[in-house]
Structures are given as structure tokens and as C-alpha cells.
Design a protein around this nucleic acid. Structure first.
Lengths: 340, 340
DNA sequence: TAGATTTGTGCAACCGATTGCTTAAAAGGA
DNA sequence: TCCTTTTAAGCAATCGGTTGCACAAATCTA
């Protein structure tokens, strides 16, 4: 147990050079001779030297930590995004610090506070469902810290965004139902202040119209698209004089809620009512019948977000132009939407 | 945009005192007069002073970051544990840095490397399924960093552990099936080098024996307990001359795999074969029939782990005695295990 | 071969907060 | 009033790297 970590001073002493030389040697500075660099490497190895990131961070102001904030880690979508971010970040020497907002604006604020205190080099985030005031995000920008928003984004100047084409995903899903022969297609929508839900609804609507089916507002049920909301929405739709024969839900959870109600009433899926969800959660393949859903390219989304962050870092002094990336979603067809 | 963050030097200048006084005033040092403390507070507010954790970390060696490493974030069990950890940690002024091992030893090693580089103040971890060599965990110990293991633990001297009573959970689950009148109860077990699976099997076995049912090794199918393993295991059991009438699975995923196979073959659950899982994943309540499972008290587990870490930190100089905490699991009975 | 460059290191300040040791002033005691 | 305590604050070193500038030696140019 030697303990008391070795520093560049220890290495310097051994080689009878100065710490500056050691520092430069370790960071492969061009002005240091190959001979010295190698000697330093050898001694560093022998002393089991570990670069002290804190000291470096103090001097350089760079912690090499990316703060990631998402509503909850427990969604396959978000956890996949995290994986994507981690892959790219790690390779570039960055660590990822994850925080969850639980979809609450208040927690979101305090998380951002914590990240700024930790002095993260950048923030990658997806906005909480609850959030209506974005001043805490503005704080990130005004501290000149790169901000990349994904999936649940909003208009914040100088923030880059990565989203999927929600419109297209919804369009594909709806068109698929139409192609399967369904005529009265309902929609479970989310709160319209989030763009993702706005676009999904639009995709749904335009797919209908493009196929000569009149859009019927009474077939749209808006909610928080949780499981319970799906149940309530389904009950609601079943009470209509002329109920739908298919539902395109803006979330898998609400689709599952609907599926439960249908099963309880012995209404067959997809024979009598077909279902399509959104997000392709892992449980979509576990339920019976398996749920057709729209895959959001989550891992790619994370990779993109991280790459954009890295570029933004590189262009530090140079003026930075915020990017808007749109990925193409994929419809995963399973049995819940197939006309028998 | 003032930018260029305010430091204690700026505050000191304004008040014509020294930075040391400001530092002490901010940390509420008893030797500083109330008057000065208040004046400092006012100026700090006005200059929008933010405590620089990096500088403090360099001096004190404490980053106030807890490293958390889990197999994957995308399991309700792990994400709940994280929530529990976060709650406790945040209140005590600690941040949480999460990393995922993807159940691979290699990634686990590199994650620990990254954490040590970040100089986390402690590590809370659940071991990867793949891991057989624990030297990387030993490194944490030898750096004198507190290590708390939860759920998937192993014998590492000086590491504290938090687990549920897997034996009891399995015992309860099996006894429940017996009480429902099932006679031939099979078991999907996990790899025996992980204690959790060893204990679950033992609980299963002893519950059988305590109720006068002979343990039958041919009814035990061991695997990685993923969904696909459950499918294969189910196929295997169905081929037996005398198939089981119930299965206690050591994971919800394998239970769902079994359920899928049974549905495909039109074998009724629970009428013909009953199922009980383990972990109480969120999808357990989504499938049809809903899956009975053993809840692992995940949030509590996280809270305990964090509390233990905090105590370990407090007792720094004092000799520390590693703790072993065992929580009591809860059986959540749903329709997959009820005798009609 | 003298002068201009290039190469390899050293010097010292700096990042921002913390803290043991002093010291000066104020309060208390005899 | 003089000496002892107590209180309040200052001094200066420290944590470990990083980096602009300086400088000597080596190499090149004409």
C-alpha cells in the first residue's frame, strides 16, 4: 500500500526535470523530445501515476463531464438514448452524469442547478412533461454551456436539437392502419404544448386526409398518455355512437391501457379494434397480441446528441451555429394491427 | 452578461477583507462575526456568486460525487434503486454519476476506471452477470473509497452490502403456489455463481420440502433468465413425461417467455400452468394474465445503500465496519398464479 | 563563421477555495 | 490600570496541473 498518489512532481523529481516538462510530455506536446516523453512514460507507469482530473479541471475549466437530464431512466427509449450518448462520449474522454426529472419542472430546475454546480461541460436533455417555463434552460445557455435537447424539445435559441420526425412516424402508423383496411381510426394524443404530440397528431390527420378519410375531432382523445389515460380514453371511445375500429396512440403506455380494457370486454384485437403505439417500449413485444409501434431510433438519437455536443465543444471560440437534426422513425409491425 | 464568474476574491475585494474571511463566512465558521457573515451573504447574492466545487475538490480531495454502476438502467428494479439513491444523496449534497456495465465484465472494469479518474467519493454498485474476477472492485477498496454493493453482491472485504432476502422471497412465492393447490412446481433458475439465484433456488426447494413435496431436480431449468431462456425452458418442461403445473421463475423476463410459449400452444395460465416471476418489473402488470411477482423493495434498497455510504464517509478516520443489510421482499399476487 | 531559426526545458503565475498559524483588537478579570 | 482571554480576521501555503514567456543550446542559412 503505497497510497498518497503520485503526481507529476514525483515524476519530475525522479527525472530531474520540472513538472511543466512532465505535464507537456504526458500531453504529448510537440516541443518535448521523444526521449523525454518516453522516460516520463516509464516513470509514470512505475509510480502508478494517475492524471488528476480535478486539478486539470480547475486550471482549464473543463470537467469532461456531460450532464444528461431525462424524465425517467426507466423507459426503454431513454435508457437506449443514454447508451448511445455513453458510447460516443466515452470514446471522446467524457463522462456522463445522469439525472432524472420525474417529469417535474421543479426537480428539473434543481437538477440543472446541481449540474451547473458540478460544472459540467455540456448538457443533453429531454424536457419534462410538466415544464412550461424554460428559464432554467436559458441559464445553461447564458453560462455559455452547450445545450443539446432531444425528443422533447422546445424553441431555445442557441440550443441544438435532435428529434425524430414525429410527423412521419405518425403518418406511417396511420397509413399502415388504413392499408390494413381500417376505416374509423381514432387517436390518443398527448398534451399539445409538447411538439412531439403536436406533430404526431398532424401526421395522423394528414395521413387520413391523404387517403380520403375525413378527420373527425371526436375520435381524438388527449391526455398524459399513461396507461390509465389509455384505459379512460378507450372507455370513452367505446361509448361513442359510432366507435372506432382502430386507434393510433401517441404512446405505448396508453395503447396498453386500451388493450387491457378491450380484453376485459372481450373485444378482439386487432379483429374488432386494432392498436398501434409509439416508442416501441420493450414490453410492446411481451403483450398479447404483440403491439405494433413506432421505433424512435433511440440509440442513434443519443449518439447524435453526443456528437453534436462534441462538435459544439470543438468550435468553442469560433462562432457556433445550433444544429437541428431530424431522424427517421421506423414502424415495427406486429400483430395488434394486422387485419386478419 | 457579466460572465467571468464571481469568486471569493471578488467578494473579498468589495468588503475589503481577505478571501479567507469570505471562505469562512460562507461555510459558517464560528470565528467569523455575524455582521461579516451577513455582509458576505449580501455581496455574494449581488455578484451571483457560485461556489466552485472543483477548487474545493482539489483542496479537500472530495468531489461530492457518488459513482453508481449497474448492469442496465432499463429495468424497473435498477431505475428505482437509482431513484432511492438519488433522493438520499441529493439531500446530503452529493451528486450521482451513473454508469452501466451492460452485464459485461470488461465494461465494468472500464467504468470503474472512469469513476476513479473522476475521483468519486464512493461507489455503489451491482455486479455484472458476466463478472467472475473481482479485482477491479478490490481496486476501489485499496484506494480507500467506500464501496457499497447491492442486490448482486459478492464477498469483498470492507465492502458493505444491501440485499433483499432472496431466500425468503422465493420461499413465499413457492409457498403461495402450493397454497393455491399446485403440486408440481418447476423452477427457472439463474447462474449459480450469483448468490441471488442460489438463494432463490434454495428458498424454492425448502418451501417445497417444508410442505411435503419432494424436490425434483428435473424440474429445475437454469439459464440467464432472459425472455428467450424462458421460452426454451418452457419448451423443455413441456416435453417432460410429467410436466409441471406451475413455475416459479427467478426473473420476470423468463416468466414472460414461458407465458408466450404457453399462449402459443393454447395452454391456459394459470388454469393449466401457473406462473410466478421475480422482480416485479413494470410490465408484470401489463401482460395478460397479469404476472404474480416478488417485489424487491428497490427504492428502499437505494436509500439504504446511499445512507450506508454517507455513514461510511462520516466515519472516515474512525475505523469503519462494513455493514450487511437485508431487506424483506414482498410477494405481489396477481392472476397468473391463482387457482381458478 | 556570424546571424537567424528551431528545439527542448525551465520559471513562475494561475485556477479558486481551504486552513493552520499569527496577530491585532476587544472584552474580562484582579 | 495592567494583564489574561476571547474574538475576529489576516497571512501564506497548499491541492496538482497547465501554459505564456524566457532562455540556452543546437541546427540551419548564407
Amino acid at each position: 500500500m503505497s497510497k498518497n498518489k503520485a503526481t507529476i512532481y514525483d515524476i519530475a523529481k525522479e527525472l530531474a526535470v520540472t513538472p511543466s516538462t512532465v505535464s507537456r510530455a504526458l500531453s504529448n506536446h510537440p516541443r518535448i523530445s521523444t526521449k523525454t516523453k518516453e522516460a516520463v512514460k516509464v516513470i509514470a507507469e512505475r509510480l502508478n501515476y494517475q492524471h488528476n482530473g480535478i486539478a486539470a479541471a480547475l486550471r482549464s475549466g473543463k470537467t469532461h463531464i456531460i450532464g444528461v437530464m431525462i424524465p425517467t431512466v426507466n423507459r426503454s427509449f431513454f435508457s437506449s438514448v443514454i447508451r448511445g450518448i455513453e458510447q460516443v462520449a466515452r470514446q471522446a474522454g467524457y463522462n456522463v452524469m445522469i439525472t432524472q426529472s420525474n417529469d417535474l419542472e421543479e426537480i428539473e430546475r434543481s437538477n440543472i442547478e446541481a449540474m451547473l454546480k458540478t460544472q459540467v461541460d455540456g448538457v443533453i436533455a429531454s424536457i419534462a412533461r410538466d415544464t412550461t417555463n424554460y428559464s432554467h434552460y436559458q441559464r445553461i445557455i447564458s453560462e455559455k454551456i452547450p445545450l443539446v435537447l432531444f425528443d422533447r424539445v422546445t424553441e431555445i435559441s442557441n440550443a441544438s436539437t435532435v428529434v425524430i420526425d414525429d410527423y412521419l412516424g405518425a403518418y406511417k402508423a396511420t397509413e399502415h392502419l388504413i392499408n390494413q383496411g381500417f376505416k374509423r381510426i381514432a387517436h390518443f394524443g398527448g398534451k399539445a404544448h409538447l411538439n412531439i404530440y403536436k406533430y404526431r397528431k398532424r401526421g395522423y390527420q394528414e395521413a387520413l386526409e391523404a387517403n380520403g378519410i375525413a378527420f373527425d375531432e371526436s375520435l381524438v382523445y388527449n391526455s398524459n398518455v399513461q396507461l390509465e389515460d389509455g384505459r379512460i380514453g378507450m372507455e370513452h371511445l367505446l361509448q361513442l355512437a359510432n366507435p372506432p375500429d382502430a386507434i393510433f396512440a401517441a404512446s405505448d403506455y396508453s395503447a396498453i391501457g386500451a388493450m387491457q380494457v378491450l380484453k376485459e370486454r372481450n373485444i378482439k384485437v386487432p379483429d374488432e379494434i386494432a392498436l398501434v403505439g409509439f416508442a416501441d417500449e420493450s414490453f410492446a413485444a411481451f403483450v398479447e397480441p404483440q403491439l405494433t409501434s413506432v421505433n424512435q431510433m433511440s440509440e442513434q438519437m443519443g449518439q447524435f446528441a453526443a456528437k453534436i455536443f462534441l462538435e459544439q465543444i470543438k468550435s468553442e471560440a469560433t462562432l457556433f451555429i445550433p444544429t437541428k437534426t431530424v431522424l427517421t422513425p421506423q414502424l415495427v409491425v406486429r400483430s395488434s394491427s394486422k387485419k386478419p
